[in-house]
Design a protein around this nucleic acid. Structure first.
Lengths: 195, 195
DNA sequence: CCTAAAAGTGAACGATGTTCACCATTTGAC
DNA sequence: GTCAAATGGTGAACATCGTTCACTTTTAGG
């Protein structure tokens, strides 16, 4: 396969994925309707399936885009701060801000699950784990004694705790905090766990 | 409406809900298929709709059962422990254990979301918030200075952090910790946040 | 009894994910 | 340039859902 066909194929995949991302942004996971997405992208139903095995694969691709955006934001945050504790605080706030400003993308990222027996692709697992690297750095700087498995575990714990705060704050089921108080609790959390 | 009809109605509702809980336990949220549940309960499709407005209402009823079980376990834990910090530790471990042993019920509880515009019933919000009361007590005992909104906020933060640890530990997307190390991180989390 | 209300039924409708037989375009060898 | 194989693209058709509703059966109470 050379030039023209490859370009066409990539373009189609890109347009379909764009339409899927737009659909999720507009209406969440449930808005990913193959017929609508095919129409929005300007293709037929069958073409979608030439590029994505099924709806799950399309949603994983959307989640991959979301993870890319989060990674980019986290990278900027780490670059723009020097003090390790301030970095962790800023990372947590950036994570919260992204979730609030991209609620549908964020809930899709963590709300979509494959049926039993369908394993998550290894490359997607790595994309997720990559987020932890931003935390491990400053955490190690604050706790030079931490290393190896202990550092990995603590990193995951810090991420999970912040993730939980963000999750519950977006949950209508629990009445959530207002902005300022939530940010305060986030700082408390980070300072307690990172020190 | 008297005796016989009321009994029949309650029995039907109970059997349908039982079938729905069993379906979730066996296959998660996606296994809640109205036709299957009607068959399992021994009724027709239409009868299900006489007792539950729609699939969402049925799932909320299932989640209500799940919350009841969690509440019961948490109550026993608090009763069986005296030291406030030990209570918080035990609550966190009980929460984790429930999630691990009832993965499908737990992921349904937090994975099911109503479509935009459909508000969560007030009684169900209260059921969720009720879990926080178990935490607020010991937390106040450990921090007598905490009261009012500050205590509420801190309670929610502690719950959220533990909830996050449990969530991520069940996520195939992130490779999760093994039992002992996870429990260790849970203790670290509780001790840092509660003190 | 007898009629109104409530419980229970299941065919039918529309929406959805997925498949596949088919046409159109591109490719590379001759 | 020609042509057969490969690839891109199509949309009707199928199976499976949630949901509705006209209908039958059962219960209530005078």
């Amino acid at each position: 396969m050379s030039g023209l066909q490859k370009a066409k194929s990539e373009e189609t995949r890109r347009r379909v994925l764009e339409a899927a991302v737009a659909a999720v942004e507009a209406g969440g996971m449930e808005a990913v309707n193959i017929r609508n997405i095919a129409k929005e992208a300007g293709y037929s139903v069958g073409s979608v399936y030439k590029h994505f095995a099924d709806q799950d694969a399309l949603l994983i691709a959307v989640n991959s885009v979301t993870l890319g955006r989060i990674r980019e934001i986290m990278g900027e945050v780490v670059e723009g701060t020097q003090d390790p504790l301030a970095q962790l605080r800023a990372l947590a706030h950036a994570y919260l801000a992204f979730a609030q400003e991209n609620k549908n993308l964020w809930t899709t990222l963590f709300g979509h699950h494959l049926p039993d027996g369908k394993p998550v692709p290894e490359w997607h697992i790595q994309e997720n784990i990559a987020l932890l690297a931003f935390i491990a750095g400053p955490l190690k700087a604050l706790n030079p004694g931490l290393a190896g498995e202990a550092l990995e575990d603590r990193t995951r714990t810090c991420f999970s705790a912040v993730h939980g705060l963000v999750t519950i704050s977006l949950e209508t089921r629990f009445i959530s905090l207002t902005g300022a108080r939530l940010k305060g609790e986030m700082d408390y959390l980070v300072e307690r766990l990172a020190g």
